[in-house]
Design a binder for these strands. Structure first.
Lengths: 183, 183
DNA sequence: TGATGCATGTAATCCGTTACATGATTCA
DNA sequence: TGAATCATGTAACGGATTACATGCATCA
């Protein structure tokens, strides 16, 4: 899935600037299954505009740099339907963490613990993020279908991973800091 | 994590040819969190040999092409320890499936079902694979530590994903084919 | 007879990341 | 004063995939 499709898909939810799209991809809803940098987002947006799949509106801002707000066109929505109508490629999952755990006999014991704790921290961040997305969205109708499905998927997978690692830490004899409940 | 590290790490478990490494990465134990193609494996192996981190032994075979069997050296084991001693980079997960599900309003309903079923099939393949790795290994001592940890992680995560999608299929009103229990 | 498995390797190409350039404002 | 946020963009670079080349044996 190339960055053009990703941007076009995002723009069906709301109009946005390249800067905002990047933020959403790395902090928001999409962060745990999408990645893209400025170096790929800005060119992609320009191409989409050239092809008439999105419109651009330049806005001046007091005290801030000018920005370019992109919005999807009807042609863009049509094309997106076509781009999405292929059965998706298999998920790609790469984990240096698991590779290191596999070879843990080559690592110092404290390093193993650090790695597990770091992984756990990442997973919890993602989980909190997903839960925040759920709460932030007051109107349940807006979440129906797609977003709800994706959030639920992420939540169940991440929860399983967290439980597993918590259990392993206990086995390793690491004292568990009691976690504050999400407010 | 570059392909050189991956190959070197694999070779600590047993000696192997480039061809076998590729197979293990795509079918075996590592398949669900590692990827590498011939185009990256063969050059990596050559570099490792040049650096003295692995040895090469050429074997002629009757009726089959000659093969080059690689084995890790002591120097290789040392270097691997160093390469692994950095806290691993964050897992990378890219899912076209989730992106499509997010935008499912742009898809035909039957396409959504197909995508979920395909995803489910992939996940079940991986799960069966993990369970086979467990069974295949008669000697539990060989699995202790690293391998067992990784297998357990994969199993819990994949099981959660499968349950979630099975539930969703029921919601979508798709009749469930009873699955044969793994023999 | 044609596909598949075994087996190694290279060259072209692609896609994306990293790093850099620019610059005003706000917060500590 | 220095860092962070907002904001857009390009050029160089890197790393890996894809496709290609070769060739014998086996199985359907």
């Amino acid at each position: 899935m190339n960055v053009k499709t990703l941007c076009l898909g995002f723009l069906t939810t709301r109009e946005a600037t390249g800067y905002e799209i990047k933020k959403e991809f790395e902090e928001g809803f999409f962060s745990h299954f999408i990645e893209a940098s400025y170096g790929s987002i800005y060119p992609a947006l320009n191409q989409l505009a050239t092809q008439g799949l999105v419109t651009v509106r330049e806005e001046e801002q007091a005290g801030k740099p000018d920005k370019k707000v992109y919005a999807v066109t009807d042609a863009g929505r049509d094309v997106l339907g076509k781009w999405l109508s292929v059965v998706p490629a298999r998920d790609k999952y790469k984990s240096e963490f698991l590779f290191e755990m596999f070879l843990q006999q080559y690592l110092a014991p404290h390093h193993v613990v650090t790695a597990v704790e770091t992984q756990l921290a990442h997973l919890r961040t993602d989980l909190d993020n997903i839960r925040m997305c759920r709460e932030k969205c007051v109107d349940p109708a807006m979440m129906a279908g797609g977003p709800d499905f994706v959030l639920g998927y992420g939540e169940s997978v991440l929860t399983a991973a967290v439980s597993y690692l918590e259990g392993k830490l206990v086995e390793l004899g690491v004292p568990q800091a009691p976690r504050a409940a999400a407010e």
